[in-house]
């Protein structure tokens, strides 16, 4: 696999939930070693895309290649092997195990997947915790952590097995400015230090533009814009610009589709 090849490559992928078509024959590539922010209005299925890449959902058709492996075709065992060796995911809530303390949460994947002696696990866990600045919080239980701290612990846990790709699900939601700044710094820093491929799902235009090498804008199950933040800001189509600038009306209408207003009101009178 050469460096120039995309790390994740989606081809002709369709996915529907119930009767609703979420993705229709979508093609998209996520470049290796870069931070790509996946953005788009609520309900476009951004998180769904992460779950499809992680193999937690199966597409109706099409392929999702992660570093040369077609995720939907993998057997359960191969899928778990792929996740263990290559993938990390940071969930919106952090998803820390509530019955384990901070140290044991980070040690969990190491203990399950490796036969390392406890002294080495201790060193590794402390290194990961130091990277997110929470080495001193190792004895706390998840209930004692603030939202931002929980997310940093979860980040330490998701890099415990040294993945090649990390997927961040809404990492900025509900954080105070300081915690937000920390997470932004960590995402950028880890990407550079570990040579990771990072996928980031977010609504926050400002933060995403600040750390992402590329933006991928989704709407109605298709990619409406892909490029560097500057490219999209300046050259994107109307829909892209409306989203990035947060304009209330435009190609995405303010009004939910409805009958003619006048006729609708008068219908009540008659």
């Amino acid at each position: 696999m050469s460096v120039s090849q995309p790390y994740v490559s989606v081809r002709g992928m369709s996915f529907s939930r119930g009767d609703r078509l979420i993705y229709n024959n979508m093609d998209v590539d996520f470049p290796r070693g870069k931070v790509t922010a996946i953005m788009g209005p609520s309900g476009t299925g951004k998180t769904t895309l992460l779950r499809l890449i992680g193999g937690q959902l199966l597409p109706d058709s099409g392929s999702i290649m992660v570093d040369g492996h077609n995720v939907p075709d993998l057997s359960r065992k191969d899928l778990f092997d792929l996740r263990r060796k290559k993938m990390g995911m940071l969930f919106q809530t952090g998803a820390l195990f509530t019955d384990l303390n901070v140290f044991d949460n980070v040690a969990f994947p190491l203990r399950v997947h490796t036969d390392l002696p406890e002294s080495m696990i201790r060193d590794l866990v402390l290194m990961k915790l130091e990277a997110v600045g929470l080495r001193g919080a190792r004895h706390l239980s998840p209930a004692e952590l603030s939202g931002g701290m929980a997310r940093r612990v979860a980040l330490a846990r998701s890099i415990a097995m040294d993945p090649e790709i990390i997927m961040y699900d809404e990492p900025f939601t509900g954080l105070d400015p300081i915690s937000m700044g920390m997470i932004v710094k960590l995402i950028r820093g880890l990407n550079e230090a570990l040579g990771l491929t990072s996928l980031l799902v977010s609504h926050d235009v400002e933060e995403s533009c600040a750390i992402a090498d590329y933006l991928c804008l989704l709407s109605d199950g298709r990619v409406i814009g892909f490029g560097t933040p500057e490219e999209l800001m300046n050259e994107g189509n109307d829909e892209v610009r409306q989203f990035l600038r947060g304009e209330p009306d435009g190609p995405v209408p303010f009004h939910y589709p409805a009958d003619d207003y006048r006729a609708d009101i008068l219908a009540g009178v008659n």
Binding site: G54, F80, R83, R84, F91, L96, T98, S158
Partner: peptide, 10 residues
């Protein structure tokens, strides 16, 4: 937590 476990390969 169950999803996180799955994504860790557990």
């Amino acid at each position: 937590q169950l999803s996180a476990m799955e994504m860790m390969g557990v």
